[in-house]
Nucleic acid binder design. Sequence first.
RNA 1: GCGCCCGUAGCUCAGUUGGAUAGAGCAACGGAUUUCUAAUCCGUAGGUCGUAGGUUCGAAUCCUACCGGGCGUGCCA
Length: 607
Amino acid sequence: MKPVIDILEEKICAAMAADTGRQDCAAIVRPATDAKFGDYQANGVMALAKQLKTNPRKLAEQVVGKLDISDICEPPEIAGPGFINLRLKPEFLAERLLEVNKDSAGLGMEKTSKPKNIVVDFSSPNIAKQMHVGHLRSTIIGDCICRILEFLGHNVIRQNHIGDWGLQFGMLCALYEKKTEEETKKEKGAVDYKVLADFEEFYREAQELSNKDEKFKERSRKAVVGLHRGDEMWRAYWEIIVRNSKRHYEIIYAQLSVTLHDDDIRGESFYQDKLPGVVGELKKKNLAIESDGAVCVFPEGFNNKEGKPLPFIIQKSDGAYLYATTDLAAIRYRVNELKADAIIYVTDSRQKLHFEMLFAVARMAKWDKRQNTEYRIQETGEKPQKVEFVHVMFGSVLGDDGQPLKTRSGENVKLKDLLDEAVERAKKVVEQKNPELSPDKKEQIAKAVGIGAVKYADFSNNRTSDYVFSFDKMLAMDGNTAPYMQYAYARIKSIERKAQSKDVDIETELAGVTELNLAEPAELDLAKYLIRYGEAIQAAAGDYRPNYLTAYLYELAQKFSVFYTNCPVLKAAPGQRPTRLLLCDLTARTIRHGLSELLGIEVVEQM
RNA sequence: GCGCCCGUAGCUCAGUUGGAUAGAGCAACGGAUUUCUAAUCCGUAGGUCGUAGGUUCGAAUCCUACCGGGCGUGCCA
């Protein structure tokens, strides 16, 4: 089903076009700013009147005259300088609600008519280091975007561009070799993964040795060369390190309910053999030139402090490649092999300039189009479809001091510690609020609430701004938090449980609902909001902003609470109860869908 | 210096191609509990939307200047 707002937009646009003969009309339908104006308002007539230099009220009248939406709305009203106010007909609302209710999987959402292959690049932790707060936002925002796009019917290709290559692997492999030798002397055989359990320690040890032990340093250098050459032994050590390191973040992904798996990993190492080709081709196309010994591309419109062209360095003067080179190789792979129609990068805003330049260079090289398609395009006359590049950026997670969140000793906060603490704190609250629950239940609730709180707090902030991390705030029962949302859900589930003891057969009663009896203001308000779920998802998808979705869910939960306090369900009169049961059920399904399917936050039956 | 982002209630933040009287939550104050889970709800108070101009029927939103903050800015990622 198309969202009501889109149907109105189309119909009013058509009326505007019919009246003025212009094709580029925009009705700009928005939810009404005040309930007294109705349910929706169209603002576009005023802008159009300005362009046409005519009286906006008069134009509004003409447009309304050409408009037939009597199946959806009461007669439109023109107000103020030229607003068109729209009020849904109760019959339409009821009918719509029943339809949404019937669609158990999609809740009335329409799948896209143009499914695209969308590559989403997110999370990207570094091998041999634990995931820390810095990885939180990319991981969960990226995951949420994938879930939403998939729900809309797109083919999402997740790409975890892990840091599994670079100079530090020389010393890690050298240390691994050293440890293996030591273990062999002790007749224990090869080092097993338990030795690598504490990667922080392993990394630190390698660094220390590197600093003070010349022989070790030399061995590290040999390892780097060996890795580049593809020596079997070094490659094997590298693989062991990578494989064991991956376990660490697989645990975190599971804990966060993040839909990233082994198949989605395409790390830096994957692109290594493609880098000379990237540089070579850019040189051949005369886009890359040597400057101060480094190979650079100078995309137009980027200047440095002296106002001179800013370089996008793709090869250092010592011949080494950089992340810019890898990113370019990744674009080619994604466009040509993964057949991407769009590539979305979920990284922090500090990399904005890098991505702007990356995209510019890719376009200069025409790598935003698939190879070997030119001739077919000429034959068929199709326009070459350009791949869309999007940088979905986000701000930093800050501590109380307004600085990026660190531990007291100034280290990055490990994601595992942070999540464990959230669960621990949630557990205390559960313990206090509901001591009679079984230990298993308490544990399960604490996990859902604790992890949910961390994720929800992140989602509910505008992703582009920094936010201050606060356990107390995210675990608060009041306000736009995960616990509030989960509580709203649990309350509905409680009604359902209670129904059994009162001999109310919800299933039978719901199955028999063919028409609704929406009378109370709280019922109407909730009903009108329930049919707008699709709008919220589209808004969130359109701008890749999860906070539009959390805002909707929060408001929905609030409207439900109002309904809950004002409208008894189980004790309702026989003529009212089916409608109220349906409102409860649909609210629960919407909250569950939003939280668990789209945000990856668990709901609980009891709290 | 230059570029990008930001400045909204005491605090933390929303605000969807410019729309009607700028919205939430927290904190403060007042009220509601024989319950369908009060982890809730209702109400009150709180704002020259950084400052000053400009564009127009209409600006938190667009333009200009300034003040204040963050980030970035040639061989890290």
